[in-house]
Design a protein around this nucleic acid. Structure first.
Lengths: 240, 240
DNA sequence: TACATATAGTTGTCTAGACCAATTTTATAC
DNA sequence: GTATAAAATTGGTCTAGACAACTATATGTA
């Protein structure tokens, strides 16, 4: 259950334990959790440590607290965080669709002025330009272009891109992606988009630009995507 | 500065104090804050209390911490929360535009099946239907229809809607809006939309549906909006 | 000079309590 | 039975420390 001698923090262990119980259905939405004092007693840990775990789970939308009444499992998790919102793969899986990808261009180019600005690098310094058609159940869903500084992220290859770009950036290179800014707008398909997405020219599309950053605001990537409006809706849950 | 005898929690007082310093520019992005122990010493409070304030500010995107180095002011605040994203008024002000509104319909109708479902009420039970043209700098920006259960939210009038709907729901009625789900899609203007928004039929528009909830998942309102794509982009910052 | 080592400073985790505030439950009085 | 009061329960805030993990700096040594 909880290992007090583990190098893994106790509050984190408790967090995962409760999340598991929620995901396995042992704790259902609306259920009251045992009181904080009981957890402290049961696991022989301080109540403050229990609160640290609870507080994190409340912030992440798993639980909510009512003073004098107790702590309860939230109806559904809001604010899934970046993962479900930035990774096309995860996004599609969450929608019950089989994600796919078709690389149509991979090269290092001198950074265009706009891209250089977003990435906080010199104009014309080298950037990877990765162009892909994103598929859902084998049907084109979006046309996506990713820009990454070749000086910050070294050693990128087609193979890595096809496997998992994020895993390489976070796992192998050790960057910790912290936050992102997304800009969403409506438009209509131009000739190139209509061709790649198998839709008519002038059909509605959703343009999404995502800039991702490390904790200290260092830009890591810029992604510009054109989604088929007939197949894609952008959904977001937010806590106040 | 900090009043230990105030009924206002110390951690909250410290939170506000630091936020003020950031907003006034006394603390600039990238600046290191005095260490936690110094705050504890200065204000004669426990370090854990300081950490409670810091943790909240980190979660809200004002600060970030680096173990062994210190705590720093974030570049810009991410995750503004619901306020800037749900209130048309605040949204427009943040963009430097003067918000306006033109009420075109206000009535109580029997809830259509789809709306009843979203609001978790019986079909045909009474709901307010509030239709407005939303203006920015006197020019139409969006066509917006709000649905609110007349049984949950009583006593709504045109005057309240024109003043501030949220203030009435939260202030007067005492509901605390906790979170929202938004669905965004791209489309093209139909005849009605093109007329109200002064755009051509077939011009791109952005459809946004927002469902807002209380802490215990009680639905409070459903808002369906059609934004002019030539004037509006949806922006969102998110922390991982 | 270059490199290893010690030291100090910082955040991260944790304890074992205390008292307060809100709510629910139980006991009491009528 | 019903209303009121008291007690118990629960989350909210706060303390005064302790030690761990990590970073930067100073120091000593080859």
């Amino acid at each position: 259950m909880i290992n007090k001698n583990s190098p893994i923090p106790i509050y984190y262990q408790l967090e995962e334990l409760i999340k598991d119980q929620i995901e396995k259905g042992d704790l259902k939405p609306g259920d009251a959790l045992p009181p904080e004092r009981e957890y402290a007693e049961t696991y022989q840990i301080s109540r403050m440590t229990v609160r640290q775990a609870f507080t994190k789970l409340v912030n992440d939308g798993y639980l909510y607290r009512l003073q004098g009444k107790g702590t309860f499992v939230a109806e559904r998790k809001v604010e899934q965080g970046l993962q479900g919102l930035t990774s096309f793969t995860e996004d599609m899986r969450a929608r019950g669709l089989e994600p796919g990808s078709q690389l149509i261009n991979f090269e290092v180019i001198p950074a265009p002025v706009r891209i250089a600005k977003y990435l906080s690098i010199e104009e014309s310094s080298p950037v990877y330009e990765i162009k892909r058609i994103r598929l859902a159940d084998q049907v084109p869903m979006a046309l996506e272009t990713t820009y990454i500084s070749a000086e910050k992220v070294k050693g990128l290859t087609k193979e890595i891109v096809n496997r998992s770009l994020y895993e390489y950036i976070e796992g192998t290179l050790g960057f910790r992606i912290d936050h992102a800014r997304q800009i969403i707008e409506s438009s209509v398909a131009n000739q190139i988009e209509s061709e790649y997405l198998s839709i008519k020219e002038g059909a509605p599309i959703m343009l999404i630009q995502r800039n991702t950053y490390l904790e200290d605001e260092t830009p890591i990537e810029v992604v510009k995507s054109s989604y088929r409006a007939d197949r894609y809706k952008f959904m977001i849950d937010m806590k106040r």
